[in-house]
Amino acid sequence: YFQGQLNAMAHQIQEMFPQVPYHLVLQDLQLTRSVEITTDNILEGRI
């Protein structure tokens, strides 16, 4: 994955969860590489 793709995914998640800091979303995406998994992590309070 290149950074631009991760940034696009992070923006997509931020639209759904504007209360979660962008850098935390991006940090999780770098591990998961998945909008779905990061979204689940937010919903389950891991982020």
Rank of each mutant, 00 (worst) to 15 (best):
Q30N: 08
V20I: 14
L24D: 05
E36G: 08
L31D: 07
M9H: 05
H11L: 15
M9T: 04
T38Q: 01
L26F: 09
Q14Y: 14
L26W: 10
Y1H: 11
M16N: 07
G45H: 06
N7L: 15
T39K: 12
L24Q: 06
R33A: 08
L6I: 10
N7Q: 15
R46T: 05
P21N: 07
A10W: 07
D28R: 05
I42L: 07
G45L: 05
Q14T: 11
H23T: 08
V25F: 04
N7R: 14
I37P: 00
N7W: 15
I37W: 10
P21L: 06
L24E: 05
S34E: 02
F17H: 05
R46P: 01
I37R: 13
I42N: 01
N7D: 13
I42E: 00
Q12E: 09
Y1L: 12
L26H: 04
D28S: 05
V20M: 08
P18S: 05
H23I: 10
Q14S: 13
E44Y: 14
P18T: 04
M9S: 04
E36H: 09
Q19G: 11
Y1K: 11
I42Y: 03
L31N: 11
G4Y: 13
E36C: 11
L31F: 12
I42W: 04
L6K: 02
V25I: 15
Q30I: 14
P21G: 04
I37E: 10
T32Q: 01
E15I: 13
V25M: 04
Q19Y: 15
E15P: 02
L31G: 06
G45I: 04
G45C: 08
G4F: 12
T38F: 02
I37G: 07
T39P: 00
I37D: 08
L31W: 11
N41P: 01
R46E: 02
L43A: 06
D40T: 15
T32M: 02
Y1A: 13
Q14N: 11
G4E: 15
M9A: 06
H23G: 07
V35P: 07
T39W: 08
Q5C: 14
L6D: 03
H11G: 07
Q5P: 08
Q14W: 15
Q12T: 10
T38W: 03
Q14E: 05
E44R: 15
T32F: 04
Q27N: 09
G4C: 14
D28N: 06
L31C: 10
R46W: 07
T38G: 00
Q30W: 15
